[in-house]
């Protein structure tokens, strides 16, 4: 793949990758870095991409998700080493009386559930595609989706219409 093709690919998908990582991490700088790294990693490992097996978008999302996990793990290790430099995320600061925003509600979800709901709702990906990106069985995707929607309804005080 030459640089003009890579640039074309970047122009087509970088917005989606950034939006996914931003909704997941809610950190602008980190999301921009992951977006850049996703395309560079794709360029370096393009031989492992098989168009017959998955769509290019799914492949890029998988790279972005893996990079996000790696960077967050690294950041958490750093936080453990130098805890006094980081503001502690205070969960108890959300009172039950306060109406919380969707941003806060998403961050309240476990990481594994957050990725499923973001990919499903904001990127309109199918269960199959999500399963491919996160490398988990379809049954797990369905169960995580069900539980994250239930938790979001509870956090956002949405009436259950089931």
């Amino acid at each position: 793949m030459n640089s003009s093709k890579l640039e074309e690919l970047f122009n087509s998908y970088h917005r989606q990758i950034y939006q996914f990582t931003y909704r997941y991490t809610q950190d602008e700088t980190l999301s921009a870095e992951i977006t850049q790294d996703t395309f560079i990693k794709f360029h370096n490992y393009k031989e492992s991409f098989d168009p017959a097996k998955s769509h290019i978008r799914t492949f890029l999302f998988r790279i972005a998700y893996q990079l996000t996990m790696t960077k967050l793990k690294r950041r958490n290790k750093f936080k453990k080493l130098l805890p006094f430099l980081y503001e502690r995320h205070n969960v108890s600061s959300i009172s039950l009386d306060d109406k919380i925003s969707i941003r806060t509600a998403l961050m309240e979800l476990p990481q594994s559930h957050r990725s499923v709901i973001i990919l499903f709702y904001y990127h309109a990906l199918s269960h199959n595609e999500i399963s491919d990106i996160l490398q988990i069985p379809i049954g797990t995707v369905k169960s995580r989706l069900y539980h994250s929607l239930k938790k979001l309804k509870h956090l956002l005080e949405v009436e259950d219409d089931e």
């Binding site: 939006q19 909704r23 969707i102 998403l106």
Partner: peptide, 9 residues
């Protein structure tokens, strides 16, 4: 309501 503005990257 969760809109994301994409910066110049």
């Amino acid at each position: 309501q969760f809109n994301v503005d994409v910066p110049e990257i």
